[in-house]
Design a protein around this nucleic acid. Sequence first.
DNA 1: AATGAAAGCAACCGCGGATAT
DNA 2: TATATCCGCGGTTGCTTTCAT
Length: 353
Amino acid sequence: MGRTPCCEKVGMKKGRWTAEEDEILTKYIQANGEGSWRRLPKNAGLLRCGKSCRLRWVNYLRADLKRGDISVEEENTIVKLHASLGNRWSLIASHLPGRTDNEIKNYWNTHLSRTIYTFRSRTTNKPDIITLTLPPKRKRGRTSRWAMKKNKTYCAQKQKQPLLPAVPLPPTPPLETEKHSSTHENTTTQEEENLGTNAVWVEGEKEIMNKEDDIWGPYDKEVINGGEWDQVLSFESFNDIMNSYCPQASGCWTISDEGYRESSEVVGNKTCDHTVTSSGREKRCFFSAKASSDSDLCQSAVQLDHKDESVSWEQHQSLLSWLCEDEDWEKDLQSVCEIDPQKQKDMVDWFLS
DNA sequence: AATGAAAGCAACCGCGGATAT
DNA sequence: TATATCCGCGGTTGCTTTCAT
């Protein structure tokens, strides 16, 4: 037999918590400690589900919660961590003392996701620069008839030309972890050393982190499989995409928004520079790598962006085959061209978006 | 001052791994 | 070992707030 039921589903109160309920819950947990959420409502005299009590405590009532706006430093950390971890909000929150996963998730969805994912590319005269223009954040308030009319016209015009398909958000990449078996030690292997990464053990799980302490490491999409390192190509994240273009470079790619100043990050032997103009609405991204061969290819990849926005499927194909023409890259990219054609297209779409 | 669209966010829901029986 | 429940997480919903019209 299993455990006793969680709670009575009937008669449970839902919706917003009152100040009185908050007080009851706070006093109970202060006296009895956290945990045993199933028994808590009955013992505390609350008509709430245990889950609801836990959520209220964790996200709102805990004493160690930080109140107020997310700082620039915290925002940078969120962006960096999200670039490597995906939507693992609890993991991201664990690096931000006083912030909850729910708070970070909401902040991302309302403030950051737009900045990171919806900027549109356009052509520039400089071959090694991508200029990304952020859409102006819409102010609150009623939409004017003029704006609605304008938007309608805009949509109609756009439909005349073939549009790129909607760019799917990259799904949460699988966690590059390995169960901490007794055969492994809490040390960085020689291969990890060569890759410019460190093995970090978190609650019995091995996570591959960068050596740069202040750069939250995007995780290489590599897993230990029977003692061997296998490259997994699925292009589900920015890191995968950049790695697909520059497999020779070790380390990891990151996207960061350092505010209104030029920034440069080096992870492994890869570099991702961002310059944000004073207007804050335009970004220039320089992608380069320390190794000259990598740099050549990275810049080549960036030149893709100089094609017309309405990149055709044929152009996508030529892009990939063009990348494969390079002798040194042929082998590495062979597997790229063997993956699902739709996935290739999505990859390029996402990269250009 | 009233209206209503959009933003912000607290809370709910469902799923999956962990764990108790 | 099988089964049922707990617990925590991420996705989603819907209420509240804001503010242009």
